[in-house]
Design a binder for these strands. Structure first.
Lengths: 342, 342
DNA sequence: CTGTTAGCGCTTTCAA
DNA sequence: TTGAAAGCGCTAACAG
């Protein structure tokens, strides 16, 4: 890497002159500026980012912590984060915790060593289960701006970006009801997570509001060790549901495939809706109806909020630093051929 | 962030004493070491990584450039990279180019500003189509170690990690043949890419070797704008294939779903094999047979090779810097219920 | 055993 | 209009 020093030497001027010239300082003569810039571009000079970071105490880098990069929702969010960070001139360093509390703590530890100006995080499953948030509390004391998304906790005071899981499912139940469905089932593999609970609650409340009662058997909880195919098949046969909402992606697709192998007509005999996106919808025939979580938007809004915080930190804007916002990103219901689109 | 300076002041010793003490220097008395460490841990001190990077001219960070983070193969590779980088003590900064040449150039530009010690890259589709590699050539002159994976080019001299696309498909055709299949089809959405061409060639060569001739109609090329569902359906009906190999993930799953809707028994009447992984296989009933590309391993080996290079750069090991290796990661053929497993 | 000094690459006063 | 010097946080050679 070519440095200011080398340019200076070659031009027989001082380092500070070169620096000023490259930054178009009015202190420097037009002639010198041109001379310097010429050589700099010949030599392909570009300023060392590390040195700038140290000098300015600002890295222009955002740290991201997600539970699992192989989970399509999170990679979609990451995609949104990338795009938005790009627009704002930030790079990102990402860690995937694989749902592990220790990895999450490690990640925060690394990020508190001066490499990032702020972080965006969705906490791990283990963190939620163990109800342990000290690492996050400590971190938030360090005056490094922090935004949480999707997997959030009210134990930590910071900006948050989520979808309204409760209302989303509530609305979906209502839609199916309006289409004439009278036996709506709910399948979930994420019952331990907050988002899973909110979704289940939305389902219960909607069922209750619509039918006046709630049938426990219409909820199928699947755990990691279960054979999804088998459990779903039994669920459909036993309950005789005429529609199913899946709290996660995969089960929605599997449900369609199984229903068809049971000879059920989709969507006439069984309507299926699942969280996911258009790509996933492609995996089934007929295509799954999806509740789009808008991961891209979640990511991009998280960055926006974070950048806001960082700016008010750096430029001391008026913003009240103790007031945090929780932003709710709307979901879209995209009909596939697996739901009556009437 | 607490600094050495602050610790030093509080203890009434010099900065260098604190530094040495924390690094267990034999120059420092045991007493002082303990005193310093005690305060450091109380104050939650950890060394500023930026300062270290500047000092050592070494960031312990790897730059990663992938064509699309939403592509499951690449996020799997990324996962492998993360794990391995973690083991070696490196952080990673990732850019997703969205198959754009300009973004790829930008990414390399950013990485040549001193933020990373080496980079791992799979080049974009546009880069390949335009056959433009100057940015890569320039980069490789900068003496920053570079490893390419999956999407590689022989225009650039560097370590490479790939799978043997040709042989993988060749073997798969042979397998199907041995199972008694006599009309094997091939579906591809990535005909423009090298990997796509290698796969198609493997298919052609195997067909030729086995049948003594090659039927062009048994290859279906699908382009971005096509309706996959429609094209695949027609292909199956028109050719009457008894087995299909898909050069990419999605088409494999779609093929199964379509075949079933055509009333074909799987795998008896139609065997289906596609590139992918176990998770994707879950999306279809019966499960798709997958050719596992071992993305994790590709990622992790890329890091190993890169770390090797970086070490020989830093520690001046004997390694001949002009000899580059191309590592071939084996693929696994994992039978689902969509292929006779005999 | 401890402290002073210089330097990594850069910007920014302050002097000349 | 240009240059010298200090400093961001850290380490390491050299003095004391």
């Amino acid at each position: 890497m070519i440095t200011l020093k080398e340019l200076a030497k070659e031009l027989n001027v001082s380092v500070s002159t070169v620096s000023k010239a490259l930054n178009d300082s009015p202190e420097i003569s037009q002639q010198t500026i041109e001379k310097v810039k010429k050589l700099a571009s010949e030599r392909n000079y570009s300023p060392n980012k590390i040195a700038l970071s140290l000098k300015n105490n600002r890295t222009l880098t955002i740290g991201v912590v997600i539970p699992d990069i192989l989970n399509r929702f999170y990679s979609t969010v990451l995609n949104g984060i990338q795009e938005s960070a790009d627009r704002h001139g930030y790079d990102i360093i990402t860690f995937s915790t694989k749902e592990s509390l220790v990895k999450e703590m490690d990640s925060l530890q690394i990020f508190s060593r001066g490499t990032v100006d702020g972080i965006i995080i969705a906490i791990s499953e283990e963190t939620i289960n163990k109800n342990y948030f000290n690492h996050l509390k400590e971190f938030s004391l360090k005056n490094i701006p922090l935004v949480m998304f999707d997997r959030v906790t009210d134990k930590i005071n910071c900006d948050k970006v989520i979808i309204d899981d409760f209302q989303t499912i509530y609305n979906e139940v209502e839609n199916l009801y309006k289409q004439g469905r009278r036996k709506i089932g709910f399948i979930s593999t994420i019952h331990d997570l907050n988002v899973g609970k909110f979704r289940a609650n939305g389902f219960r409340k909607a069922s209750f509001d619509l039918y006046g009662f709630f049938d426990k058997n219409l909820i199928l909880k699947i755990s990691k060790s279960d054979d999804k195919h088998v459990k779903i098949k039994n669920f459909i046969k036993k309950t005789g549901v005429d529609s199913v909402i899946s709290a996660d992606i995969i089960c929605g697709v599997i449900t369609i495939n199984i229903a068809r192998s049971l000879g059920l007509n989709i969507p006439r005999q069984l309507a299926v809706v699942g969280f996911g996106d258009k790509t996933i919808s492609d995996y089934s025939t007929p295509r799954l109806s999806v509740i789009e979580q808008n991961g891209n938007q979640i990511g991009s809004r998280s960055v926006d909020l974070l950048v806001d915080r960082m700016n008010s930190k750096w430029f001391g804007l008026n913003k009240n630093l103790n007031v945090f916002s929780t932003e709710i990103i709307p979901t879209n219901s995209i009909p596939g051929e697996s739901k009556d689109n009437t």
